[in-house]
């Protein structure tokens, strides 16, 4: 006849195993809780530092850097391997889409780049300069009739790092200068007008004949 008081006794080996199991799963629990806490704080901090993030190396990536002065237009870019055209448009700029032809272009290779556009600071200045990694790529001076107001509206894309496919132009800056709509009134024109559009497009190899 078996002794009922001995039925639920466990051996020393089982006890040690049980303690090891509890310790291991407690570690898993603590690791998961700490990881969730760290991840939540990382998600708050990441957008603050304007850092280029590349998850798909076959796509463009861009982020506009934090402004350190008025009209500070600097970007960190990633272009997949290949050859690209950096384009500047100053006329027939609309608030959406690509309605203009490039007035100046420069070739830019794939890889990571820091791009900067220096725009005119007031209505008297008309010089636009674009540089990549400190080397000047585009210098263009507009005519006196261009952007007479000096005031503008526009987009600031890529405030947060983002990616987009290379078959679409990567528009980095869009600025539309206000135009007179009366003796003392200036409005953003509804028709394509003077402005600054900076974009990058892939150079497509011509079809072999």
């Amino acid at each position: 006849m078996s002794d009922p008081s001995r039925r639920w006794q466990v051996g020393l080996r089982a006890l040690i195993l049980l303690m090891a199991v509890v310790a291991t799963w407690l570690t898993v629990h603590v690791n998961r809780r700490e990881s969730a806490r760290l991840d939540a704080r990382i998600q708050v901090m990441k957008p603050l530092i304007r850092e280029l993030m590349i998850t798909d190396p076959s796509q463009f990536a861009a982020v506009k850097l934090d402004s350190l002065w008025i009209d500070d237009n600097r970007w960190d870019l990633y272009l997949p391997s290949g050859e690209y055209r950096l384009c500047l448009g100053t006329r027939l700029i609309s608030s959406k889409g690509l309605t203009t032809q490039a007035i100046k272009t420069a070739t830019i290779k794939g890889g990571k780049h820091r791009l900067e556009l220096k725009a005119p600071r007031n209505a008297r200045q008309r010089l636009i300069q674009v540089s990549s990694d400190g080397a000047n790529l585009i210098t263009f001076e507009e005519a006196k009739d261009w952007a007479v107001s000096g005031s503008y509206s526009g987009d600031t894309p890529f405030v947060f790092s983002a990616q987009q496919p290379t078959d679409q132009p990567l528009i980095l800056l869009r600025r539309v200068y206000m135009a007179p709509s009366g003796p003392t009134r200036w409005l953003t024109p509804t028709e394509p007008s003077d402005g600054i559009l900076l974009w990058i497009e892939r150079v497509v190899d011509p079809e072999p004949i």
Binding site: G11, A20, T27, N31, R32, L38
Partner: peptide
């Protein structure tokens, strides 16, 4: 019981390692 505990320990050990790596 010992076999079940061993299995739990093995799974827990792997989980502890992988969550530790992530942390």
């Amino acid at each position: 019981i010992e076999v079940v505990l061993l299995i739990l320990l093995a799974i827990g050990g792997y989980q502890a390692w992988s969550t530790g790596q992530e942390r």
